[in-house]
Design a protein around this nucleic acid. Structure first.
Lengths: 229, 229
DNA sequence: GGCATCCTGGAACTACGGTCCCAGCGCGGA
DNA sequence: TCCGCGCTGGGACCGTAGTTCCAGGATGCC
């Protein structure tokens, strides 16, 4: 049982009828997690649909030491639908990146709400579809693009979110997990990009884009990468 | 409008009520495709939910020349849900592998059927969940397992589906697209496996597993691969 | 203070996988 | 018949990226 305004904080539930919202509010609960706390591990039994209200989590997979990020979810993001709707156990481990609050909805709760407002089913289908699309594009970034290109795209994103210089926003190890590689390679590619003057290092962990056009060209061209120094 | 027994041919629609089936049958149509015919290309506008009744299709993505298989769908498989439920255009290209017949359901048709029997929504959610699970495991195969291991797993599957010797079942190029690599590498790894006597080549394109235990060990161990000859 | 821990930065080595290229074979069409 | 085409098989080469190290700096804890 949560106040109904909690439901209103979830953007993708906007279209839902009042009856549907009431049902979700009546049957939902919230849970808090500390930074770095594990919400669940791959292989655990499903515990309901989680909707991130506050904070952010990362969904990781890792076979043997090496770990990589499947996706991230911030406020409004959903977690745990795969075993809930498809059966089986969680396919990935989820870890809070910051103090995080989630709305938890059991399968019966969702079914009851769908009965009140069938549009909820469409909304859920839409979210899962988005997940599929996202995974597909992650798959072909990792399989077809070299690390340098993936890193360049990452840097441009960071660059756009800030003015002037920027940091990676997380440790190099984390960035590597994001990009599907290892830390050392990230370091090397950062150096290479600095070598060809596309970026420059201001201070440890802080960079500036010095040739945005070249970086963009690197990201979007399908041509092999020239790292001529 | 299709006969109702067409709906009965779809295994995952089994749990559906008679009313739901009738609705789908009333509003569904079927379409035929020749082998190698393209059902749609990435970027096309959605044309409904396709359910494979007969035959098989492959769903491919390819950025610039190189192509790889996202998934395959045989009888009972579904296609096209992502843009239908999530909006946007098709995220991948779909090609018939054999003469194929599909049931096509428009979004209004599905919504009408969901209204008659809400369980249909759960079934669709279940299928999409399966797709997500499958993509995730494909992603970590490709990112964390060497080609040799992926190929070994593929060969074991072929081995199990037949007695004695077996063929790859499709051209080496196709196998490469399945495994997320290129033909030349497949050839090389096949030779390497033959070199260490795990398989042997009976005739062009035909192989036999000669050391199943070793092959299985190769697939399941997380240790680096020894290709000592 | 000293110690462990985690971070960034880097060097050297290796090998896996991709590219390019060639040869031979079978098959269907012109 | 010959030509083109797709398929299998293989050789040589090389670049990317993973592995294994090492060093220095910051931070926090005992």
């Amino acid at each position: 049982m949560v106040p109904e305004r909690v439901i209103s904080r979830v953007p993708w539930l906007e279209g839902l009828s009042a009856a549907g919202r009431r049902e979700l509010a009546a049957r939902g609960v919230t849970r808090q997690f500390a930074a770095e706390q594990v919400l669940w591990r791959r292989g655990d039994q499903p515990r309901g649909l989680f909707v991130v209200l506050e904070g952010a989590v990362r969904v990781v997979r890792g076979s043997g030491g090496r770990q990589y990020v499947l996706h991230r979810e911030g406020p409004g993001g959903t977690l745990g639908e795969v075993p809930l709707f498809g059966g089986g156990t969680y396919p990935a481990t989820v870890i809070a990146e910051e103090p995080t609050e989630c709305l938890v909805l059991s399968l019966p709760a969702i079914e009851a709400a769908v009965a009140r407002d069938p549009r909820l089913a469409s909304l859920l289908l839409g979210r899962l579809s988005g997940r599929v699309r996202e995974l597909a594009s992650r798959l072909d970034r990792v399989t077809t693009q070299p690390v340098a290109r993936r890193l360049a795209a990452y840097l441009l994103r960071r660059h756009e979110e800030s003015t002037g210089s920027f940091t990676l926003g997380q440790s190099q190890t984390r960035v590597a997990e994001d990009l599907g590689t290892v830390r050392e390679v990230v370091v090397r590619e950062l150096r290479a990009l600095a070598g060809v003057k596309m970026i420059s290092r201001i201070s440890p962990g802080r960079y500036r884009v010095t040739d945005e056009a070249a970086l963009r060209a690197m990201v979007s061209s399908r041509a092999p990468i020239s790292r001529t120094p």
